[in-house]
């Protein structure tokens, strides 16, 4: 891919262009210094954050995530992690919008149970409807069900983000065929969110034609998070270029070697 194409190959979400197709979470790191180092190594421009009760009457000089990841350097993607109902998710994101000065881009996730963290798509659909009607740009986490993904698009979500496998599992892409159907049907960006375990998983997601990948645990829970963040950056770029380049067709065998079949020294002519 030449430089011009590379520059043109932007990820566009809700009308804004991003050169990085890797979106990262900010949880589970040892400390904020490691968080920042990993995010720098990942090259990510969009970072997810959670909305939680502020510590009251505790250490007032306690460092805050925003000190390490200033909102003017990154696009914040406030999430609804930990919400199990549409009402809680909507309430959380209204607070997020107020917190971030009217910021509209959000990640909706409504979970079904605390054991598996599997998404509750019924509540997700309900919350998406409300949020879209209130003017939010909704990137929505969901199962890998192509029908639900399409319904979320029809509601007006700006990106649909099916799981590769369950949150924090690191199991990789368990149903590439469903992801392919979702990508084929979608007119909005499809990003894989959750389940990626290693760089190969991220590359495969991109080769399937995903517009991007969102991950947290794969980086934060690696033995060396900063190095894994760098690996993920390269995997996303490699996977994207591989997708754009178009792979050779698969054949069981070809009888067409890469080296010339003539001029062999053992030949007779």
């Amino acid at each position: 891919m030449n430089e011009k194409n590379e520059m043109n190959d932007a990820l566009v979400i809700a009308g804004k262009s991003y050169h990085s197709r890797l979106l990262v979470g900010t949880g589970k790191y040892k400390d904020f210094t490691e968080t920042r180092a990993a995010i720098d190594a990942s090259g990510a421009q969009i970072v997810t954050v959670a909305i939680r009760r502020t510590n009251i009457g505790q250490n007032e000089n306690e460092p805050s995530l925003l000190d390490y990841l200033p909102p003017d350097e990154f696009t914040y993607l406030p999430n609804t992690a930990g919400c199990y109902s549409a009402d809680d998710a909507v309430r959380t994101l209204r607070l997020a919008r107020e917190l971030l000065d009217g910021h509209k881009l959000v990640k909706l996730e409504v979970l079904g149970d605390p054991k598996t963290l599997y998404p509750n798509v019924i509540e997700t659909l309900a919350a998406a409807k409300t949020l879209v009607s209130e003017g939010f740009d909704v990137m929505v986490y969901t199962s890998d069900d192509p029908i639900i993904a399409k319904q979320l698009e029809d509601i007006g979500c700006c990106a649909v983000m099916p799981l590769a496998s369950l949150i924090g599992s690191g199991m990789g892409i368990l149903n590439p065929w469903n992801l392919q159907i979702i990508i084929e049907n979608a007119k909005i960006p499809v990003l894989v969110d959750a389940g990626v375990g290693c760089a190969a998983d991220a590359a495969i997601a991109m080769e399937l034609g995903c517009e991007g990948v969102l991950m947290n645990t794969a980086i934060a829970a690696a033995q060396n998070p900063v190095l894994m963040a760098s690996a993920m950056k390269k995997a996303i770029e490699a996977g994207r270029e591989s997708y754009l380049a178009g792979r050779m067709p698969k054949k069981l065998y070809s009888a067409s070697p890469s080296s010339p079949t003539t001029g062999l020294i053992t030949g007779n002519g």
């Binding site: 949880g27 939680r52 805050s64």
Partner: peptide
């Protein structure tokens, strides 16, 4: 935020004060 000066809290009010923290 623009109304922090005008809005008064009184007996029995329930407040939630939230911020952004690390999350995935």
């Amino acid at each position: 935020r623009s109304q922090f000066d005008q809005v008064m809290v009184c007996q029995g009010d329930q407040l939630e004060i939230v911020g952004a923290v690390g999350g995935g």
